[in-house]
Design a binder for these strands. Structure first.
Length: 893
DNA sequence: ATCTATGGCAAGCCGA
DNA sequence: TCGGCTTGCCAT
């Protein structure tokens, strides 16, 4: 127990810091701006308001330092008007705007109107004069390209490539990285299309360039909090920072601790390999943190944007701490925090990205918390979490605090540093500095990639309202109510067990369609009369026959390097581990971008939103798969099932498969390939539900409840046993033996359920809460019921404990101990609950007793889960188990 | 905060 | 109490 709460509240430090004590951090940050510099990586960019110039952060892998380069080309922020200079000159609101600089005449290609037009660039002294304030210039006139962040604007105009190598000579910035591509890659370039070749060469150049070693540190801080489960507000920063930890790529393992009255024990300077440094004053602790932030070129946090750096900044500026603004090496944006010297990457933001979560990491983590992510990606189950770290000794606090920064560092290290590599690859593809890329969604990446290409081609970037005006809305009717247009086609499965099945699919179906059908906002529904006969199947839309669409070429070229270069290479066995992992990462990065490249056009938040384009892509997809099915049938091949881009065929011999593949290439211009073959496939009448057994007994399960992650562990493990049995089935006759083994499995599970021979843990469902608890007004799903029970009994007062520290990387969710009655639960939380008799029918696992379990409900759930599979393999659950008899036995008992 | 649509399923809601 | 419809989650 702490001796005094006062110690943690804000009040003057024991002694007012003297200027001398400030020595190291007192100085204003003076970046190094060499006039000449060898090859360095362009890793970050910013805008200096005082100098009114963009600056680049360049990382030199030799010295492991960041050097700055300030723009000296005189580039200024601007937006574009279609009006003439003369008429704009009469616009007093513009010319009298305090930030107005000058007009510049230029020309742009206006793709929506298929004409090169004269435009006027309205230059301003600073980005905010263009946009971002109520009286910015873009509010005074109809402007184009006025909502592009200035740094990005600058990068596109200067043809800069984030993540690539530059040097400085005589103060000038020069691209100095790889200019050539591998000799063997030239074979995949098209001979007859220079523009397309240019794009492929660009991607190859970007993605074949090396990634340096980045010297980096992970930071985590602990802050005192009077209420255990509440994280202090980083804006007011009312409480003391009591600890900070750094884990460096250079093996630095440092913990900084604030000495507190009443904690006397364990103050050794070595705890389990950690360097522990003690501070009597919080001021000195912060100064030491800032020194480290000025030392490392890369700083990683988990939630540092919203907490750690924000807290440190505001805390330091408190009068009682007495730092001056210039002494704090942190800069805050509205939703991001950066460090003045290096690059700050908030891994929370990166892993929160749905595309990263689903495609790059295969949906391995469900909750975006440090523990959940570390748990699933780093393999081994990490240390237990506990939100409250009150009353820890110094040693314990040190280990506890260090643990999180160590996890963050490990996330950048594991598996050959794939996270670092992925961030690099995505930054290069999206033409965004790492910091910006890692904070945006996939639509932001694709937007940036396409904006850059507009600038390269001197295209005027259209306004969203213009595209909508010109191209209109969709015309097909979606299957699902509330959706904008019809999507992929799912073939009605032929129920039963089918032996020897080949599954064919179109490689990157939608990107391939965008490529081969020349789709883009410019070409869809173009204005040429003669193109109107070039119909998109199943729609009234048509597509241009005269002009190549930029999106088609961008997406197409990305798709081609993935399919033709990276896919084969990622299977190559002779590569060094480092190269192999890089190719794997690039593959994944391309997959992420390509997967979203069609969907973004159907999203009204996307800058180039064009619903007929998305609709056409899906329509062509339906056309492709139905044509292929027709052709298969003409060739006498049985078709059992198909979903969007795949078809399940009875294996007809290699010759016929080849014939079908050839046909697809010729008739559709699409690459159809054998994805896999199954010894057998079991289909029920349900779509998106099947079980397929590979020749080597591996089993694919798709869509079946037994595999879903929210179901209780006991069901999952029983299901796995069921699958093992089915995996060993080789022929129809084997099913007889399987039948007996399945029966045994079912009856023994029943018996266990009946005897309640399971732990609560094994019986818990786990479901993520999609939105805040209060917003469930229409219905109350079971997991929400359980969550509401959890928040009950929460003490209204701060309770008896006087002191707590709150783990800093915790966003609200992570702070919550799973078994704590005082818990608040919110969106994103995983709720674990069991089904019980009486009451609400559910209880959070932490509140339930094993004897309350509603056994019947579990039996029912078990039955329906198994039935899905048994259905498919033609076994009747009731007949097999005599389920009626069993349940009646149970209910009679 | 910000790719799309399709589909299965359990459970909630509500009228008869 | 039943059936039809909706909601929310999980998955592809």
């Amino acid at each position: 127990m702490m001796s005094s709460l006062d110690h943690y509240l804000t009040k003057p430090e024991p002694a007012t810091p003297k200027p001398k004590a400030l020595a190291k951090t007192q100085l204003e940050f003076k970046p190094e701006t060499p006039n000449d510099m060898a090859q360095s990586y362009f890793v970050g960019a910013g805008y200096d308001g005082e100098r009114r110039a963009v600056f680049l952060k360049l990382y030199d892998p030799e010295t492991e330092k960041i050097r700055f380069w300030y723009d000296n080309t005189g580039h200024t922020p601007y937006c574009i008007s279609k009006d003439s200079v003369e008429s704009l000159q009469r616009e007093k609101k513009i010319v009298n705007h305090p930030g107005f600089l000058r007009f510049e005449t230029s020309r742009r290609y206006d793709a929506l109107n298929a004409a090169e037009i004269p435009v006027t660039l309205i230059h301003a002294e600073d980005p905010l004069s263009i946009g971002g304030k109520e009286d910015s210039i873009r509010e005074k006139t109809r402007a184009w390209e006025a909502d592009i962040r200035y740094i990005e604007n600058y990068i596109y105009d200067r043809h800069l490539e984030p993540g690539m190598i530059y040097s400085i000579g005589n103060g000038q910035l020069n691209a100095s990285g790889q200019t050539s591509i591998p000799e063997s890659a030239k074979e995949i370039l098209p001979e007859d299309d220079a523009e397309y070749s240019r794009l492929m060469v660009r991607w190859l150049r970007l993605l074949e360039s090396p990634v340096p070693n980045y010297r980096r540190v992970a930071l985590d801080i602990e802050v005192f909090s009077p209420i255990e489960t509440r994280v202090p507000d980083p804006e007011t920063a009312d409480y003391k920072v009591v600890a900070a930890s750094f884990c460096g790529s250079d093996n630095a393992r440092r913990v900084l601790l604030l000495r507190r009255p009443g904690v006397a024990d364990g103050s050794s300077n070595q705890v389990q390999g950690l360097d522990v440094v003690y501070f009597d004053r919080e001021y000195d602790l912060l100064a030491a943190i800032f020194e480290t932030l000025m030392d490392y070129p890369f700083v990683f946090t988990f939630n540092g944007d919203d907490f750690d750096l924000r807290y440190l900044y505001h805390r330091a500026l408190k009068p009682e701490l007495g730092f001056l603004r210039d002494q704090v090496p942190i800069e805050l944006g509205r939703d991001a925090a950066s460090v003045k010297y290096g690059i700050h990457l908030d891994l929370y933001r990166f892993f929160f990205n749905r595309s990263v979560q689903v495609y790059a990491f295969g949906n391995k983590y469900r909750e975006v918390t440090l523990d959940a992510i570390a748990d699933s990606l780093l393999g081994e189950g990490k240390l237990e979490t506990s939100a409250s770290i009150s009353n820890l000794s110094y040693n314990e606090l040190a280990s506890y605090c260090f643990r999180d920064s160590e996890l963050v560092m490990e996330l950048t290290l594991f598996d050959g540093e794939i996270v670092m590599k992925l961030i690099n690859a995505l930054s290069r593809i999206s033409v965004l500095p790492m910091e910006d890329m890692s904070r945006q969604g996939v639509s932001g990446w694709i937007k940036s990639m396409m904006y850059k290409e507009h600038r390269e081609r001197k295209y005027l970037i259209p306004r969203a309202d213009e595209i909508k005006q010109a191209k209109g809305e969709t015309e097909t009717t979606a299957i699902i109510k509330g959706k904008k247009y019809k999507g992929g086609m799912v073939i009605e499965p032929v129920p039963g067990v089918h032996f020897s099945v080949a599954v064919l699919d179109f490689a990157s179906l939608y990107p391939s369609i965008i490529k081969t059908w020349n789709l883009g906002y410019e070409t869809i529904l173009c204005s040429h009369l003669d193109c109107k006969t070039n119909k998109i199947p199943d729609t009234k839309h048509w597509v241009c026959t005269h002009k190549k669409a930029m999106e088609s070429e961008l997406v197409g070229s990305l798709r081609d390097i993935r399919i033709k270069w990276y896919k084969p290479l990622s299977k190559e066995r002779t590569l060094s581990p480092d190269m192999a992992s890089w190719y794997q990462v690039v593959q994944n990065a391309l997959k992420v971008v390509l997967n979203a490249s069609y969907g973004v056009f159907g999203s009204d938040r996307f800058a180039l939103y064009c619903p007929p384009l998305a609709e056409s892509t899906a329509a062509i997809g339906r056309y492709a798969i139905s044509q292929t099915i027709d052709e298969a049938q003409k060739l006498g091949i049985e078709v059992f099932y198909g979903d969007t881009d795949s078809i399940f065929l009875g294996f007809p011999g290699q010759a016929k498969l080849d014939a079908l593949i050839q046909w697809s290439k010729k008739a559709l211009g699409m690459e159809l390939e054998v994805d896999k073959t199954y010894r057998y496939v079991a289909l029920s009448n349900r779509k998106k539900n099947y079980l397929g057994v590979h020749p080597d007994n591996r089993v694919d399960i798709k869509g079946l409840t037994g595999k879903k992650r929210h179901i209780p562990e006991f069901l999952k493990s029983t299901f796995v046993q069921l699958i093992e049995i089915l995996g060993e089935v080789k022929t129809q006759t084997d099913f007889e033996e399987a039948r007996m083994r399945i029966l045994n499995l079912v009856t023994s599970t029943y018996a266990k359920l009946r005897n309640m021979d399971f732990t609560l843990d094994e019986l818990a469902f786990s479901i993520v809460i999609g939105k805040s608890i209060a917003s469930y007004t229409k219905t109350t799903p079971q997991h929400v019921k359980a969550a509401r029970l959890l928040s009950r009994g929460k003490p209204t007062e701060q309770g008896s404990e006087l002191s707590h520290y709150v783990d800093s990387n915790v966003d609200k969710r992570e702070a919550l101990p799973k078994d704590d009655l005082e818990t608040e639960v919110g969106a994103g939380d995983l709720v674990r609950f069991v089904k019980v008799r009486g009451g609400k029918g559910v209880k959070p696992m932490s509140q339930a007793k094993i004897h309350e379990i509603d056994v019947e409900k579990y039996m029912e759930y078990f039955r329906s889960t198994f039935e899905q599979v048994l259905d498919a393999v033609g076994l009747d659950y009731e007949e097999l188990t005599g389920a009626k008899k069993l349940t009646s036995f149970f209910s009679g008992a």
